[in-house]
Simulated assay, not measured.
Amino acid sequence: MTITQLHYVLAVAEHKNFTKAAQKVFVTQPTLSMQIQKLEEELDVQIFDRTKKPIQLTETGQKIVQQARNIVNESDRIQDIVDQQKGYVGGIFKLGVIPTVMPTLLPMFISDFIKKYPKVKLKIEELNTDEIIERLKEGHLDAAIAATPLELPGVKENVLYYEPFVGYIPDSHRLFHENKIEVNDLSIDDMLLLEDGHCFKDGIINLCKSSRDYDDDHFQLESGSFETLIKLANEGLGMTLLPYLHTRDVKEEEKKNLKMFKEPVPAREVSLIYNRSELKMQIIEALRKTIAGVVKGAITFHNVNIISPLNKSKKESHSD
């Protein structure tokens, strides 16, 4: 049994196709098939049911893949150990970022990071929270930037910043003439929300749940982007909430529609998350320092109330 064979097994398990798996690991399809067959003969079990389309894992194969993933991940970390001992900050680093953070945070830190750490090859993917959790679990990500707390077993959450919610309220709305708004002013009935799958939407629903009775069927308009929500609000179809960093991109003539909350300001916690067993800590720490450096000047709020992205209401106060 070799690490290479286990890599091949994991590729087929992921792609459910020998040809695609061979392309992923940069070998010919016959070579990959022969190595997997050798492994099956050595173990005297069938890992894959080739009679099904797409190819499926057998019951024993599922257990083998689970263990193979652990073995491959641990073997990959040998190089990480060497790099740490040498103080080397470099190599490929796979980072997932949630969609409501990607467009605002990435431009703020990516240039600085590349200049400071030119030997790090960042591979960044925009993924929703569920996808991030799955990929972290499978070892396809080294770390991610997501709204927390997520309370995942074996996952470390390193807080980067606390980002307030800001109301976007057009002049036709009942709250437009308020200098500052309160959580109790919010109604889910006229709230424009992001589509399902965005944790920012779950945070808003949790915020509204905390202030009054909430019925899942009340809200009506959803969109995939904050830009569309702003346009819908401008058409008089309701109000929306934006993450604070996104308000920096609002058009000058629309800034009059931005309303801050009274303290304690509802906010989301944004963290760098990674498996507790992760060994690329020198890169994780480099990312944390770079992001903290640029965000510190952009977000200087105190006395915030953290709204959980989980599908339940969980709040905690934070002052810094």
Rank of each mutant, 00 (worst) to 15 (best):
residue 1 M to C: 12
residue 2 T to K: 12
residue 2 T to L: 10
residue 5 Q to C: 01
residue 10 L to N: 06
residue 11 A to W: 02
residue 12 V to L: 08
residue 20 K to C: 01
residue 21 A to L: 06
residue 21 A to P: 02
residue 26 F to C: 05
residue 28 T to C: 00
residue 29 Q to D: 09
residue 30 P to L: 06
residue 32 L to N: 02
residue 36 I to C: 05
residue 39 L to D: 00
residue 40 E to R: 01
residue 42 E to V: 07
residue 50 R to Q: 12
residue 54 P to G: 10
residue 54 P to Y: 11
residue 55 I to D: 08
residue 55 I to Y: 11
residue 62 Q to C: 04
residue 66 Q to F: 10
residue 68 A to C: 13
residue 70 N to P: 00
residue 72 V to I: 14
residue 73 N to P: 00
residue 76 D to V: 01
residue 77 R to W: 03
residue 79 Q to R: 10
residue 81 I to P: 00
residue 81 I to C: 08
residue 82 V to S: 14
residue 85 Q to M: 14
residue 89 V to D: 06
residue 91 G to A: 11
residue 94 K to G: 03
residue 97 V to Q: 04
residue 98 I to M: 03
residue 99 P to C: 10
residue 104 T to I: 10
residue 105 L to K: 03
residue 106 L to M: 13
residue 108 M to F: 07
residue 108 M to G: 03
residue 109 F to V: 02
residue 113 F to K: 05
residue 115 K to Q: 11
residue 117 Y to L: 09
residue 118 P to A: 11
residue 119 K to R: 13
residue 120 V to M: 07
residue 125 E to S: 15
residue 126 E to A: 14
residue 129 T to C: 04
residue 129 T to N: 02
residue 133 I to C: 06
residue 135 R to M: 14
residue 135 R to N: 15
residue 144 A to K: 03
residue 147 A to S: 10
residue 148 T to C: 09
residue 148 T to E: 06
residue 149 P to Q: 10
residue 152 L to G: 07
residue 157 E to C: 08
residue 158 N to L: 14
residue 158 N to S: 14
residue 160 L to P: 01
residue 161 Y to P: 01
residue 164 P to K: 07
residue 165 F to P: 01
residue 165 F to T: 08
residue 166 V to N: 01
residue 170 P to E: 04
residue 176 F to L: 08
residue 176 F to D: 04
residue 180 K to H: 10
residue 180 K to P: 00
residue 185 D to W: 05
residue 195 E to D: 15
residue 198 H to R: 01
residue 202 D to K: 03
residue 202 D to L: 03
residue 203 G to L: 06
residue 205 I to V: 13
residue 207 L to N: 00
residue 209 K to C: 09
residue 211 S to Q: 12
residue 213 D to Q: 14
residue 213 D to V: 12
residue 215 D to E: 15
residue 215 D to A: 10
residue 215 D to F: 15
residue 216 D to H: 11
residue 220 Q to R: 14
residue 222 E to P: 00
residue 223 S to W: 05
residue 225 S to P: 04
residue 229 L to W: 06
residue 232 L to Q: 12
residue 232 L to S: 05
residue 233 A to E: 05
residue 234 N to Y: 05
residue 235 E to Q: 14
residue 235 E to T: 08
residue 238 G to Q: 05
residue 241 L to C: 09
residue 241 L to V: 12
residue 242 L to V: 12
residue 245 L to Q: 03
residue 247 T to F: 11
residue 250 V to A: 08
residue 250 V to Y: 07
residue 251 K to R: 14
residue 253 E to Q: 13
residue 256 K to N: 11
residue 258 L to M: 13
residue 261 F to A: 04
residue 261 F to I: 07
residue 265 V to F: 04
residue 265 V to R: 13
residue 265 V to G: 00
residue 268 R to P: 00
residue 272 L to R: 02
residue 275 N to P: 04
residue 277 S to I: 11
residue 278 E to G: 03
residue 282 Q to D: 13
residue 283 I to R: 03
residue 285 E to P: 00
residue 295 V to G: 08
residue 297 G to F: 01
residue 301 F to C: 07
residue 307 I to K: 00
residue 307 I to T: 10
residue 309 P to C: 08
residue 310 L to Y: 01
residue 311 N to K: 15
residue 313 S to K: 05
residue 313 S to V: 14
residue 314 K to C: 07
residue 314 K to Y: 14
residue 314 K to E: 14
residue 319 S to A: 12
residue 319 S to L: 12
